[in-house]
Write a protein that binds this DNA or RNA. Structure first.
Lengths: 232, 232
DNA sequence: AAATGTGAATTTCTTCACAGCC
DNA sequence: GGCTGTGAAGAAATTCACATTT
């Protein structure tokens, strides 16, 4: 009978489900907005945002329109307000406590990465399986034994986990993390992990990125070598 | 008008431009195939590949069909052959020499990351601006002075560059890299870089990934407006 | 005049479903 | 029977273009 909810229905600022492509671009806009904010800039156009994110301006406007109408025609967007709206839509007003599993080269680099702290992500634990590493201090954290994963997650109330460990052990640690009730996982392990439906898993894979570059590079590099037909 | 050219036109093994989404999945299939190869498995079905890459099997078949018909109906794909075909399509038969700029935590982690070497990417140089770090050995490499970027890129014949440096200096180093003739760049700097048309730039951004996780986590966590209570 | 917000058109990507081959 | 390869259908994302507002 009554439609579930018309757009005007929802409390201002409470967007319904955003398209995935939009979500990832919103993070880019947010970064630009925060830089502008630091510079004291008050207004920004969709064109300027598009430029700094490397997308089209119509795309920016459509993305932002999913959050509501926060722009002013003829003027642009208020930097401070839009930054706030995006942060809220992305859930960055919550407190996120991140545990990093794996204190190898990558895990250590991540633990010290200033970008996390400055964006509202608190690194609350660093764990490893190597007895030589457990107990040492890295950054301002003491490395915990991954054998105690469950209790560390609980005592630190971590609600996100970053996996920075070898492919061989990634799945089993991942299972324990899920079992322990953490449902947001970012994996750097070069392997596909399987998780239950309700778990959010994202992957970052550096070798994959290089391979994609290789594909494009190769195609530029041999423009017409063995091509029977020159040009289009 | 006459269609440009039919698929049968192209020399076997010389694929036409692949859709971007396909390229990134091919890297996943390749990883699985190489693992199977190491295990001595000879055949694999699109279903099995789909499972290990976390996509649908029709998607796998469509992706692979862009390379040509390398499967056998009723049987599946020959692991060794398919691995070779994908590697070739991705341009991994070339020799890729990677220079890493920035020997901070992340740069060091990348320099030691075994995943690169094992996938045909040769890390040939590591550069930094810090006099305390220049000249020290990390992994197999001696850290060079980024002031000599151009000559290092030339002498090592690097054809890819990984940027692992702070946002403030990323653009200027990026410009020098492009000017020096390297057209494939993977950036870990949390900033949008602008490059000429013909340069391939990819970005990996850890803070962005966490923000996307935060968005999804928040939605699960939100005390449902019209959501069922998560009790099951 | 300037720039947003948005339906409509377009392109790209995914999924379906089944013919064809082993 | 089992599994690939692929047109056709469907869904998602992007781009266009312009009415609308300041």
């Amino acid at each position: 009978m009554i439609p579930a909810q018309t757009p005007e229905d929802r409390p201002a600022g409470q967007a319904r489900q955003l398209p995935p492509a939009t979500v990832s671009r919103l993070t880019l806009y947010l970064r630009t907005l925060n830089a502008l904010l630091a510079d004291g800039v008050e207004n920004v156009s969709s064109d300027a945002l598009a430029e700094s994110a490397g997308v089209g301006s119509a795309n920016v406007r459509k993305d932002l329109s999913h959050l509501g109408s926060y722009g002013t025609r003829g003027v642009g967007y208020d930097v401070a307000n839009l930054s706030r709206q995006i942060a809220q839509a992305l859930g960055l007003t919550h407190e996120w406590r991140v545990a990093i599993v794996g204190a190898g080269n990558l895990g250590r680099a991540l633990a010290r990465y200033a970008g996390f702290e400055s964006r509202g992500f608190d690194v609350v634990a660093l764990l490893d399986a190597d007895q030589m590493v457990i107990g040492t201090e890295i950054g301002w954290l003491r490395v915990s034994d991954v054998a105690n994963l469950e209790s560390v997650l609980e005592s630190t109330r971590a609600n996100m986990v970053v996996l920075a460990l070898p492919a061989q052990v990634a799945q089993s640690v991942c299972d324990r993390v899920v079992e322990a009730g953490v449902h947001s996982i970012l994996s750097f392990a070069p392997v596909a992990l399987s998780v239950p439906e309700h778990v959010n898993l994202r992957k970052v894979d550096m070798a994959t990125e290089l391979q994609i570059l290789a594909y494009h590079a190769q195609r530029l590099q041999e423009p017409g070598l063995e091509r029977d037909r020159p040009g289009a």
